[in-house]
Amino acid sequence: MQKPILKSVEKVTDTQYTNMYLYNYEYNKKLMPYYVTSRRKMTKQNANKPVADAVIVLPYFVKNKKTYVVFIKEFRYAVNSYIYDLPAGLIDKGETASEAAARELVEEIGATCKSLIPCTTLSYVSPGCFNEGTVTFFAEVELDKPQQLEDGEIIDLHILPLEEVIDFVDNNIMGVQGKMMTKIFYYKQKCK
């Protein structure tokens, strides 16, 4: 089976954060155009380079021997609704994924990160359309400071004991990573 060959990359929209690109492939000697959505500036050279664009963090703390998970309730403009989710954000220039995770915890939930362990290594959120790469972590936190929200960010905290998180994610609209990370965390904790 022949590998498709990327011949050229054209930018087709010009918006601030997310853009569409036209990838012109040659496959079995035929031209195959494919539209790709990206947060980055794409070229023929960087098209196959795995990049972590964003981090997602499951924050938890232990109080009186009970474990609690910190969810957020956030207005998501792309779905025109408030939805529950886990803290997440884009990795800034020059920042590592762990640094971005710690920063998002301060900004979105006002927490200090005490320890950070990876949940999954770099993976693609929706590789049929996007090249967005994400890294995920479990973070033990201490809620000890005010949130630092950006203009237009609307985030409330929703703290639940571990025993309630499975029902919660099954019964609410959320991001899919948030749901899956919560279930992984729950099962892992219960396996201990």
């Binding site: 998501r76 792309a78 939805i83 959320m174 899919v176 948030g178 279930k183």
Partner: peptide, 16 residues
């Protein structure tokens, strides 16, 4: 495995 959920709600309304 999960109830329906958004793949990347900062960027898209894609729900799976």
């Amino acid at each position: 495995a999960t109830s329906p959920a958004y793949t990347s709600p900062g960027l898209t309304n894609e729900c799976i």
